[in-house]
Design a protein around this nucleic acid. Sequence first.
DNA 1: ATTCAACGGAACTAGACAGTCCAGTTTGAT
DNA 2: ATCAAACTGGACTGTCTAGTTCCGTTGAAT
Lengths: 219, 219
Amino acid sequence: MTAASPEPASSPSQPLGRSERKRRDMLAAAERMFLAGGYLGTNMDELAAASGVSKQTVYKHFGSKEALFVELVTTMTDATSEAVHRSVPSVEQVDDVGAYLEEYADRQLDAVMTPRILQLRRLVIGEVARFPELAEALHERGPVRAIESLSTVLTRLDQRGLLTVDDARLAATQFNWLVMGEPLNRAMLLGDRAIPSAAERREHVRRSVGAFLPAYAVR
Amino acid sequence: MTAASPEPASSPSQPLGRSERKRRDMLAAAERMFLAGGYLGTNMDELAAASGVSKQTVYKHFGSKEALFVELVTTMTDATSEAVHRSVPSVEQVDDVGAYLEEYADRQLDAVMTPRILQLRRLVIGEVARFPELAEALHERGPVRAIESLSTVLTRLDQRGLLTVDDARLAATQFNWLVMGEPLNRAMLLGDRAIPSAAERREHVRRSVGAFLPAYAVR
DNA sequence: ATTCAACGGAACTAGACAGTCCAGTTTGAT
DNA sequence: ATCAAACTGGACTGTCTAGTTCCGTTGAAT
């Protein structure tokens, strides 16, 4: 490493080196273009031009179109997973289980139902045959992680006597698809115009929790 | 029309004209190749060769790559929708609601969770930006139709006093995603290896109905 | 001020691909 | 047998694209 004081830090990172700045620009253009045109539909000449960078520089940084695509999708998947995970509200001072689950579901929906993330999902699904490892990563960092996280929440609610949950993973999976199934499917197939408004989200979440609770209420 | 006795009928259709035979071969090759390679990843020279047909013939029949793609996907969507719709068991002599719903769900899963239909879904989702009308059609003929169909079933079960269903469409939507959500998402992202076996399907369906019934049981 | 890695710009390779064209052949109905 | 429609095979056009190469320029650290 070049052993300098102004290390390319993570968060604020205002003073970026030329190389890092261009790298960021290339990834930004790659995101826009791959999400809009798909893998085959994206052109490296245009991508370089849109990045304000020469083609040479793109290949110096990423090696190939495939490698750039993989890095972009992996980065987006990881970042989104982190953001979703951070938005889990604490379960310890809960008294109204219904209200808590509604807020929980609303945050999950809010994080996932954005044009950017929905298009990432479409892109990855469409490229399952060409890039199976990206789809696997999205599955792991998306639904699997969300269900695991909810699973520990439900276990805690069971321990506190607020729910009766024998199989927490099963209950979490059911809750997840009760909440996400319809909005996600609609958005996948109908495009961004099917993204529910905040009001629609709240109503949907209310009904979903209403269907979930009878199966797991305390006897 | 050519006013002949051996009209190109629908079902048995053994004696096919040369033209119709070649058309069938082209659509068969198109299905294989578009499902495997996607829209941009499929090549019309190879498609003609794989169909045992000259390129000229392909363009004579379908006009363009886009038109061939649209016709193929539309045909597959419609045919699958019909097949799923035909597999709805009658509701009239039902006494055990749980067993009936389990069978209903199992048939829906059986119809949708095939490599061919799953790959069609991946393809259409990946091409939403280029062919939004195909995605809309798949949504309409797939989930919307399934939920409508189930909705009338649930209404009938409510009328017969076997369930308490105020909002049949809501209940049908919830049932649908309780059943389809997890298997469909896994299959989309993990590929055909995630298709559940008949035994896994039955177990999953049993649990799904178990979660659904408490919310809509008769009081 | 110097130095060197990174960058720009642009041409270039090597191949791919949608769609057209044309001369000659096959098919199937009359 | 006749004949029109459908089909073949292959060449061809125009265009596009991933990746490379070359050479002159820039910028950041010493």
